[in-house]
Amino acid sequence: MVSLLDIIGPVMVGPSSSHTAGACRLGLLARGLVGGTPERALIELHGSFARTGEGHGTDKAIAGGLMGFRPDDDRIRDALDIAEREGLVYTFEKTKLGEEGETHPNTVRITLEHGSRKAVMMGASLGAGRVLVNEVDGYPVEVSGAYHTIVLVAEDIKGSIARISGILADDGVNIANLRLTRKQRGGDAFMVIEVDDRPEEQALDDILALDWVQWAYRLDKVAG
């Protein structure tokens, strides 16, 4: 269903909803994976992002997102200078992340380090500012950023979903979508849990207290 407010909006830094606003959202999601502004970032641009990204400020928008700027934050224009002052060391590379026709033309792979945390995220800007994260640390996922999202890696034990959804229910968090992926049977399971309201820190702490959960992160809603 099309919303009137989707048409009159979003408020954003120009010039392109896909190459600027969407790129910023991908940076914001990647930031969530390391829980703050990274010290190091390798940003690999593919397809149209690589070809016309500089002219659309895609580099500035992603760097801005990594520092927590939202798409309407006019600091995006100066994000590369701000990054240097903030101690974010970034490298942009143009590369091929997949085959034409299979990999979305506006795809980026972002590799981050923040303290002891490292993460690799691949995602695409689909148009009109909508984004889709399709890989985190090698796990195939689908995160749109249209919800507050919890991502976690856990041992693939029986009843893991019941335990985690129980914890979230106890903490008053309503689950909108839950998806589980794993590289192989009995291997680590990667869970993407989209929830209606921003979960409290407590919910995340309770999940992390489970000894079979390796790590969990809370990604803020970046769209919608």
Partner: peptide, 15 residues
């Protein structure tokens, strides 16, 4: 303003 990375309302689009 849009082309210069200023803040606009994408209505219906940035372009």
């Amino acid at each position: 303003v849009n082309a210069a990375m200023g803040v606009i309302v994408a209505a219906p689009t940035a372009g």
